[in-house]
């Protein structure tokens, strides 16, 4: 990726050209720039306010333990209990659900995008299933598969499936007609058309939905684990509430937030990398 920049920036247009090349940034260089500290101001303020509130005893510690208590609780959970195991349990479910859901969604989305027949075949069924929330599916699926991971994987995969499927379909359907015409002029075969024109054209829309779905999957695992099962961050958070272990509850919340943040950022980097040909507004 980086090698494109040295070949191009050094090049000049041949003699007699009026078009002037404008030096531009290449690739996804912007992702790698120095971290901007402005984003840390607000978390710092919130943390300070929390500390002050706890120190001045504005709130009963049962409802809002001090930040330090939460850190201690984290240490205790990580060393004396099985926080790591629960964390891995949640991540595994999300990872599997995301991969199954999005692979099937992209595959079926492409099929439906390329063929009206396929779209019409699945359309009514999908549009109905889509409107039953994943969480509403959970009780039935748990009856079938038990309270273990498979039921959650299935339910979350379903929630991942729909946004990705619909965006893949939409992305394919909104490929510019001009490009199809060009493919015809260049005598591309159907397979070449799909691979070289239709899929890349649909990629921005697919990538956006994958990023959204990844975040959604992470949020849903917490709910699913809270509703059924005996491990995972979702289970811990509801157990902590029941036992009034507010410090543990906060530990789980912070972890969920940070992991969600990390997932979103990595999806963003992946998106930038895949769509490096796309020129967007960078702020």
């Amino acid at each position: 990726m980086a090698n494109t920049s040295d070949t191009i920036e050094g090049a000049a247009v041949e003699a007699g050209t009026v078009d002037r090349p404008t030096p531009r940034r290449f690739g996804f260089g912007r992702v790698g720039r120095a971290p901007n500290l402005i984003g840390f101001i607000l978390p710092f303020l919130i943390l300070s306010l929390w500390q002050i509130a706890a120190a001045r005893a504005w709130v009963d510690p049962v409802f809002l333990p001090a930040p330090l208590t939460v850190v201690t609780a984290f240490w205790k959970m990580a060393t004396k209990q099985h926080l790591a195991r629960d964390f891995v349990a949640s991540i595994t479910i999300v990872g599997q659900a995301f991969i199954y859901g999005s692979v099937v969604a992209v595959a079926l989305g492409i099929a439906a995008g390329l063929s009206r027949k396929v779209e019409q075949f699945f359309g009514p069924t999908f549009d109905t299933i889509r409107h039953i929330p994943g969480i509403a599916w959970l009780p039935l699926i748990v009856l079938w598969l038990g309270i273990g991971a498979p039921a959650k994987v299935l339910v979350i995969a379903k929630s991942v499936f729909f946004p990705v499927f619909l965006n893949t379909l939409q992305g394919i359907r909104s490929v510019e007609k001009n490009y199809i015409e060009l493919a015809k002029v260049l005598t591309l075969t159907r397979w070449q058309l799909v691979r070289k024109v239709i899929l890349p054209a649909a990629m921005p829309s697919i990538m956006v939905s994958l990023r959204y779905a990844a975040g959604l999957a992470w949020a849903l695992v917490v709910v699913a684990e809270g509703l059924s099962g005996l491990e995972g961050l979702g289970f811990l958070i509801f157990r902590a509430q029941g036992l009034l272990l507010t410090d543990q509850l906060l530990v789980c919340m912070v972890i969920i937030g940070l992991v969600g943040f990390a997932i979103d950022r990595s999806m963003y980097v992946a998106q930038k990398r895949v769509l490096k040909w796309k020129q967007g507004y960078d702020g």
Partner: peptide, 10 residues
Amino acid sequence: SGFEKAYPHE
């Protein structure tokens, strides 16, 4: 020549 690896938006 020299623009072989440039994308159209460039």
